[in-house]
Amino acid sequence: MQPFDHVSATSAAAAVELLQQGGPSGARVIAGGTDLISLMRDRIQSPRLLVNILPAAAALRYLRFEADGALRVGALATLADIERDPHIAARLPILTQAVRDAATPQLRAMATAAGNLMQRPRCWYYRGEFPCWLKGGDECFARDGENKYHAIFGASPCVAVHPSDLAPVLVALDAELTIAGPGGSARTLPVERFFAPPTDDERIEYRLQPGEVVSEIRVPAQPAGARGAYVKVMDRQAWAFALVSVAAQLSERDGVVERARLALGGVANVPWRVAAVEDLLTGQRLTPALAAQAAERALENAHPLTHNGYKVPMARAAIRRALLAAAGQEE
């Protein structure tokens, strides 16, 4: 870890201010630090200034259901806060499911909701000493290398996958972010659009302007009768990033799907929303056959690499299960 200066912010606005003092690329906000500290330890990132935003917890650590049913999640709410919240468990169990199998209890107690969305890929070339494309190099070493844990979708030069469990669920819930910016400005942005595959110019999986700070995640009220399910496939029973994960959110009326959302984790640089399947499901009765058809459709455009072909049948199975579970057809 390189030396750095450390300052504290007691509000999002103060953090924005301090970030600007730190210069364009030399300053980073730190909250739980669960990802940033290990990136800094391995010298993958070496900010000159850390703005510790945890002292802003009084303002930014909350979970609140609005009268209309929307859920507001303060940026500094931890994954453990979400996991333990009885109202979320009752009203948005898909969110509870998403955090329950994320990381470990200790990491969930440290990691914040906003920070979780901004964690960087676990790709071992990125995390290792390889001068990979995502770190500014010329080549993605995973593309023709050890890519068992890598992407089966997407066109980015980087084939790492997004590691978050929360992100696909928030996409499936049509969640939005509130982002504080310089001069007291604020903007809102759908979570889905916050994520974008890394490009030559912006080698990162999310889009935040310099000096911006995420202050809130808002999950809009879901239609009456909406239900969701999150299915995570791991290669051990706990503490593993998803090989494949599926967030499915369905609203049905009279047994017919009115609206469907399907987002996959562990398959692309970003949470992978599958609009074609959502269209397929809409207006239909969700049967095992339809779920299977949806799973086939979702994987139609997959292009696995040398060592991750298994993700295709695995994702199909996970999609079938998530859809049936969301429709209340679990055994």
Partner: peptide, 16 residues
């Protein structure tokens, strides 16, 4: 060696 750590080299947890 790509997984010379306890994140990507998995050993059993209590839940296994």
């Amino acid at each position: 060696v790509m997984n010379a750590n306890l994140e990507q080299f998995h050993i059993p947890t209590i839940r296994d």
